[in-house]
């Protein structure tokens, strides 16, 4: 199951990377309205056909071409934001967990504060103040994503730092940096990677929600959430214009979730031998 998810993600990533080429090859309008070809004589979007495989949207643009371009935006935002959130969350979680005391209390308070904030309300306020742009969108997503990573990393570090192998390394004269890089990070990498792959679909949905509300990437540049938003008035006569972006969202979030589950299952039994894990992966 998780292998299928991994293959799907790889395909989606290829699509995202080569989207402009594919769109050129389709040579249908993706950004500019095309009322001449994309709408019939009554101004109704064209249904899926030999020319427009997934139909057209409310101004006659090709839905497939826009989904391809949207994949690029969506994946870029999701992956970069997830990496940034994991990086920040891991740093803060490690510092809070390792040093404890007042440092931990302060960081724990900040983490709880961020987790308690209502995402959409704050995101809308930020966009109203700073205007909508990719940068502001990603920054908002990162601010809301690092805290859960930090909380998880903190609790992992609290467990690991009490392990005898950390004490043994200390008595050998190791610096804190060495203990973190050599012993703590490798031991939390599994859960953090797993969480990261579960964070990506969350961010895809966050981005879709914000774009749906007009707070994300600005039209005519496509994102999946934005496509659903701009076509929602037409769903009764052109279901395809919101159905297919929805399917794209579903497939990608589902794949990342399944991959995350698979990673978690592969990493949870801590005592499992590495060789055997590899062999199992091969046989699956």
């Amino acid at each position: 199951m998780s292998v299928a998810a991994l293959v799907t993600i790889a395909l989606l990533a290829l699509v995202a990377i080569f989207a402009p080429l594919l769109v050129d090859w389709l040579s249908l309008s993706a950004i500019d309205p095309d009322r001449e070809h994309g709408l019939n004589q009554y101004g109704v979007p064209v249904a899926p056909s030999a020319q427009f495989w997934l139909g057209t949207d409310f101004v006659g643009r090709d839905v497939l071409s826009r989904i391809l371009l949207g994949a690029r935006n969506t994946f870029f935002i999701a992956i970069v934001s997830a990496l940034a959130a994991i990086l920040i969350g891991t740093c803060i979680g490690v510092i809070a967990g390792l040093y404890g005391g007042i440092v931990d209390t302060i960081f724990a308070a900040i983490i709880d504060f961020v987790i308690a904030l209502p995402f959409l309300v704050v995101a809308m306020a930020v966009v109203v103040i700073h205007g909508a742009s990719v940068g502001v969108l990603m920054l908002t997503i990162i601010v809301f994503s690092w805290s859960t990573v930090a909380r998880m990393v903190r609790s992992l570090v609290l467990t690991i730092r009490e392990m005898d192998y950390i004490k043994a390394t200390k008595t050998l004269g190791a610096t804190d940096l060495r203990i973190v890089v050599r012993h703590i990070l490798p031991n939390i990498a599994g859960p953090v990677l797993t969480y990261g792959s579960l964070l990506i679909p969350q961010i895809i949905v966050m981005e879709a929600s914000l774009s749906f509300l007009g707070l994300g990437i600005q039209p005519p540049n496509p994102t999946w959430g934005g496509m659903i938003a701009e076509n929602q008035g037409n769903y009764a006569i052109a279901w395809w214009s919101i159905f297919f972006p929805g399917v794209a969202l579903l497939i990608s979030t589902l794949s990342f979730n399944l991959l995350g589950d698979g990673l978690r299952d592969a990493m949870t039994p801590g005592t499992r031998l590495r060789g055997r894990t590899r062999a199992e992966r091969r046989s699956r």
Partner: peptide, 13 residues
Amino acid sequence: MVFQDPYTSLDPR
């Protein structure tokens, strides 16, 4: 020092 529990005194990674 040599520790009591040989299962937590060696880094599994």
